[in-house]
Design a protein around this nucleic acid. Structure first.
Lengths: 220, 220
DNA sequence: GTCTATATTAAGATAGAC
DNA sequence: GTCTATCTTAATATAGAC
């Protein structure tokens, strides 16, 4: 593996683990057993590492969000889709844990991130409209903006939020619970024939929670 | 006004304005036209200013949240109550804009903040139960945890969220919209007799938005 | 590409005069 | 209480040998 790539991977790991502001270029080179000078040969500084990581993050997310969505999407597809998105967000969680700060220091990233949110918003809207057309959901036209915004908020802040709620200690649980939380937003809009989907989701989540807490109780 | 208090006030202002990580002790003393040495006479460093500000924040919020809530609360009371909470959150928004980072660096604050969230959660639950008892809302027992958690998420992250959404540039609009967003969470649970409250709230918010955007279009 | 050694910068912090 | 002057520390960054 090339040193450049290893720097990116190590930085991502340390940023996620320790929080981006608490990781210096020396920390990164120490972790990799290379010299700080070597790191500076590949990247002119931490700023440039962050920008490069953001580019990766953006590219992957755009690919996910722009993947063609079937008009005959069902709840199971939508559910699966949410998992893909959440897993991606989790992979780059350092970014969401210091959102304002990073966006403040990097105006370029800020612009691009705003565009990303719009894309998220559009994809959510499209998905909801498909589910409405199939009469799985029943959301009034005028209520769409609020519902979409609520979805965006949970998508954007859940992983950060989960870290200071005693919600789960393991990655899977954070993601499961995030998906469930989004589902709870649209739960009241399910048509009666489909309400069981929400009940199933809760049951699924609660079973997982029970298993995981009986295993070990290591909340941080 | 005593220097010590002025330091706290100036710090709060600068933290909110520029973001806490971008403000140094020298910045604070410059803004006040005192020497850094003088600042260090009053506080042993930035850490201690933050801790003191957090104490103020906590005390005020606890007072708000523990204020006796009337069992016969109506929607208007609940609405008003939300405004009080949001205004308080806005006053200390620097804290919410760098939540993970501050909680990571100050374990004491972390503990206390978790307790605060629990208090928020309890108060929300109590309010909802009162509204359910009066048959204004209709939320099933089993759905309460999710609905409450969604309220907590919006309360905790809205003000930060609004700063990178082109939602509003002025304080009042951010707060109005936050209150409306919370209302949209419980909107689907309104009993038919009370749905008009939600419609009114949207109308109120949209009118304000129209006024403010015709005045000046200075999004940041 | 990678290392060692060293320079620069800015934040954080203190001593001692007034 | 407040100032000036100075010190310490850690992060950032570069030069030059290998």
């Amino acid at each position: 593996m090339k040193t450049r790539d290893k720097i990116l991977l190590t930085s991502l790991m340390l940023f996620n683990e320790e929080g981006e502001p608490n990781v210096s270029t020396v920390d990164i080179s120490n972790e990799m057993d290379i010299s700080p000078g070597n790191l500076y040969y590949h990247f002119k500084g931490k700023k440039f590492i962050i920008v490069e990581l953001y580019k990766q993050f953006e590219q992957e997310l755009v690919e996910i969000l722009q993947a063609p969505i079937n008009k005959e999407i069902n709840m199971k597809d939508g559910w699966f889709y949410l998992y893909v998105v959440f897993e991606h967000l989790y992979k780059f969680r350092f970014f969401y844990n210091n959102l304002s700060d990073i966006l403040q220091r990097h105006p370029d990233i800020r612009k691009s991130f705003k565009r990303l949110i719009k894309l998220k918003s559009n994809t959510s809207k499209t998905l909801l409209v498909f589910l409405i057309e199939q009469q799985i959901l029943n959301i009034k036209q005028e209520e769409m903006p609020e519902v979409t915004e609520n979805i965006i908020i949970i998508l954007t802040h859940w992983i950060n939020h989960a870290s200071f709620r005693d919600i789960a200690d393991k990655e899977v649980m954070i993601i499961h619970r995030g998906v469930f939380q989004i589902m709870s937003l649209i739960a009241p809009y399910f048509n009666d024939d489909y309400r069981y989907v929400y009940q199933q989701a809760r049951h699924f989540y609660e079973t997982l929670l029970a298993e995981s807490s009986s295993e070990a109780k290591s909340f941080r």
